[in-house]
Amino acid sequence: MMKMLLFAGAALLAATPAVAQEAAPAGGARIELRGGWDNVAPVVTYTDQTGSQRISGGQSGFTYGTELGYDAVFGNGGFVGAYAGIAGSTTKSCDTVGIIDECLSAGRNVTAGVRVGFVLPHASMVYIKGGYSNGNLKIRDSSPVFSQDLVESQDLNGFHVGAGGELGLTPHFYTKLEYVYTHYEIGSIDLANARLRTTLDRHQVVGGVGYRF
């Protein structure tokens, strides 16, 4: 009986490191696939001596892409990480002005930033994030009087902030949900005693699945 107890105890001690390793906090390098709701809204602000007027409108579509990152976990359960990603979008807005049809399409979006948060049980996380964004906007004008469509592509610099959470499915695989707000500067024009400023606001609710190495 004593030999059996000693054997069982030895087996439990041998299994403990493996169990601890399986239950280790999330961290390290990761890669994920992302997709979700994407809303792009141009904002025009007209400012003169009497005050400011703001006009905005948005269109929704689908965003899809990938993100790479690395998270360093501290002993108190907090973590800090860096990430970079690229995504596309189906978001498109078309209007007719006179005899000209104009379509604005959201192109690729490149992001890089940092995130901080806390590690939860079962390799899960909550976090806030922020960083740099570079988005592409395509403008296509067509008309019966044009010999061909006029196409312009413009890269926009901006910033993004967001918050989200990850749910560990296994020590390596996870699923996630996050909200991200992005602001891009397009440009401004100085008029007589007034200024016209154009920006672009972006709202996204994104889900994803990832693998942590």
Rank of each mutant, 00 (worst) to 15 (best):
M1N: 09
M2L: 14
L6F: 03
A15M: 08
P17N: 09
Q21S: 14
A24I: 02
A29L: 14
E32H: 08
L33F: 15
W37E: 07
N39Y: 14
P42N: 06
V43E: 14
T45V: 11
Q49T: 07
Q53H: 14
G58N: 10
S60W: 02
S60M: 01
F62A: 10
F62D: 10
T63W: 11
D71N: 12
A72G: 09
F74A: 03
G78R: 07
F79N: 04
V80I: 14
I86D: 00
I86G: 03
S89C: 04
S89E: 01
T90I: 01
K92A: 13
S93W: 15
I99K: 15
E102R: 13
A112C: 06
G113A: 07
G117N: 03
P121Y: 12
H122V: 11
S124Q: 03
V126M: 13
G135T: 06
G135D: 04
N136C: 05
I139D: 13
S142V: 10
D149P: 08
V151N: 10
V151Q: 09
L156N: 01
L156I: 06
L156F: 00
G162Y: 09
G162S: 08
G162R: 08
G168I: 01
P171I: 00
Y181C: 03
T182K: 01
L191A: 12
A194I: 11
R195T: 14
R197N: 12
R202F: 02
R202S: 06
Q204V: 05
V209Y: 09
